[in-house]
Amino acid sequence: MQITTAILRLLVFPGLFFAVPAAWFFLYVERKTIARMQQRIGPPVLQPFYDFVKLLGKESPRYHGIQGLLMKAWPALSVSVLLAALALIPVFPAKGGFSGDLILLITLLELPSIFYMLAGFTSRSVYGKVGSMREASLSLSSNLLFLTAVMMIAVTADTFQLSELAAPSASAARWLGLAAIILCIPAKLRLNPFSTSSAEQEIYSGPLTEYSGADLALWELAHGLEWLALSGFVVSLSFPRTGFRLADAGIFAFLCIAMVVVLATIAAATARLTIDRSVRFYWRWSVALAVVFLMSAVLFRR
């Protein structure tokens, strides 16, 4: 990949200029879907944008020293890491140069969750600490399934290169792996039924309880970008390319939005599980599935 292509990817598509409005639109689709499920009309299209601008114009409490620095750093880091992850997503597979690989992408997708946890501990709020601990245990339990699924996809395709993984070579192992990744996404996005880490009725907003103003706006944006990155990751590994860039981009966007609608519908239809139940859910499924995945990784290995 040329340096210009890399910069275009980071700044234009699927980077900054595309990603930020798309993230707002995904947040809107999430809220609208939940509203329709509750037989409401729901928010206007620009609602996430209104929230973002309003939060930018709000006062933020001042924290001194290293705490103040870190409180500002975590949301900014989350947004930048997610933008980098989005730039790596192989919507149009391109060969040569630095196109990143699966391990880098998975790392970038995993970092925001760690920043979210650290934000809770940095804020020194009791609710933040409880939320961070819940997020940590949920992330540990959902990641076994997530990582073995990713491993199986990579091993059966015999490559970690994203450009080669995105090529249409859909096998049974690929579909099984993607289904397992979709099963993990509600935990990664902190959606119902796995929304314990930001359970409003118990621990206010969890790790974000002490945040306000521009920092909170960045967290909201990071949440939208997480939606975009995770659904984009799954979709880019699953859909066959037509060869026409515009058609590919259209199919990609449509499938991503469809995924948001499905996940938001599940979120609206379920109630929050307690933390021990959600952890148990993932361990119960993940141990059995992880064995299946590792076996199929060996069996289907090329």
Binding site: R31, A35, R40, I41, G42, P43, P44, Q47, Y50, D51, Y127, E200, Q201, I203, Y204, S205, L208, T209, E210
Partner: peptide, 10 residues
């Protein structure tokens, strides 16, 4: 929510 009203925890 049509008016953007949202009950916050914090």
């Amino acid at each position: 929510e049509q008016l953007g009203i949202h009950l916050e925890g914090s």
